[in-house]
Design a protein around this nucleic acid. Structure first.
Lengths: 171, 171
DNA sequence: CAGAACATTGCCGTTTACGTAAAGGTTATG
DNA sequence: CATAACCTTTACGTAAACGGCAATGTTCTG
């Protein structure tokens, strides 16, 4: 049992960053970020293939390296997929939309012109509202469904309660 | 434009019922019930193939005929699929579960024994609670997601409001 | 520097949930 | 009773979202 083992990457030398997520330290390899996000490496590569995200960096040997914001993005993708039930194509639309708004912000927020500043923020609001417009009805319908099922449960428990006072034989 | 046309089935003679949904009258053919449920005939046949539902009757010529309770069931399937995001296999489990409870009710509700009556209703409660156990976390996560997105919208609108008082140039 | 444990790309396979077309019966109406 | 518009079963096709190899390269540790 005393052989070698590389295990967790100690430092990740020579990371060729694209943006350098930084601000928290370690870059994760695909299996690590996958575990952290509750996904598989295969899914993450597939998402990359669809253009949903790109790792912030690659190692010298072309290993994908992910930072904290990449992980956030993966969690967002997962949530939109599992919770909101969006297809990966729809998720792509959402992310692309947000991305273009974010770029617009970076490019134009530097301006002094209050009309442009307004326009930028209004664009972001519209983007977020488009997303809400798809999520809200879904939420409403799920709430109705749950309320319905919950109502059935309550009615059954009332009937149980009615049965109680009579005979306490089951004990 | 004065040729013949059968259109909607007038009466549906000789319906060989399995249970006879009745209590509202007309039996629907597959296309009609599909339109009413917002599904396609193909989907409905597929659901039948998976054992999710059987039409309450067939015509002499083997046309599938659906009653109101069949339609209800289809709507339930659709809701569990679209709103709750369950797979058809999971939906099958749910329906089977409910079905067996319902059968138990019919078979044993006739009994006088309060212990058995309790047991039956408790079984139904457990079944409904199993369903709730899968739906509730989903609802919670979707609520969190929507709240999150909604929060982003509000923050953006606050920034818009901060921009307002200064310059009202955009008009 | 050996080597176990990671990673890469490429590619084919699989499951789910249907779509679609073929070949042929069924139904209500004019 | 002809016939348009339904329906039937059977079967093959497909898009989405990965799974799972193979062949090969990379990393960190002892």
């Amino acid at each position: 049992m005393t052989i070698h083992a590389p295990k967790v990457p100690g430092q990740v030398r020579h990371a060729v960053a694209a943006y350098g997520g930084a601000r928290d330290g370690r870059l994760l390899r695909i299996q690590e970020v996958a575990a952290a996000a509750g996904l598989t490496p295969r899914s993450i590569r597939y998402y990359e293939e669809l253009g949903l995200l790109r790792p912030c960096a690659r190692s010298e040997g072309a290993y994908r390296l992910y930072d904290a914001s990449d992980l956030e993005r993966l969690l967002a993708i997962k949530s939109l997929r599992d919770d909101a039930g969006l297809s990966l194509a729809e998720i792509g639309q959402v992310l692309e939309d947000e991305e273009s708004r974010r770029r617009a912000r970076v490019a134009l927020q530097a301006t002094e012109d209050p009309r442009e500043r307004r326009a930028i923020i209004e664009g972001r609001v519209a983007s977020v509202e488009r997303l809400l417009a798809t999520l809200t009805p879904k939420l409403a319908r799920l709430q109705v469904l749950v309320a319905d099922v919950d109502g059935r449960r309550n009615r059954l428990q009332e009937r149980l309660a009615e049965l109680e006072p009579g005979g306490e034989a089951g004990r």
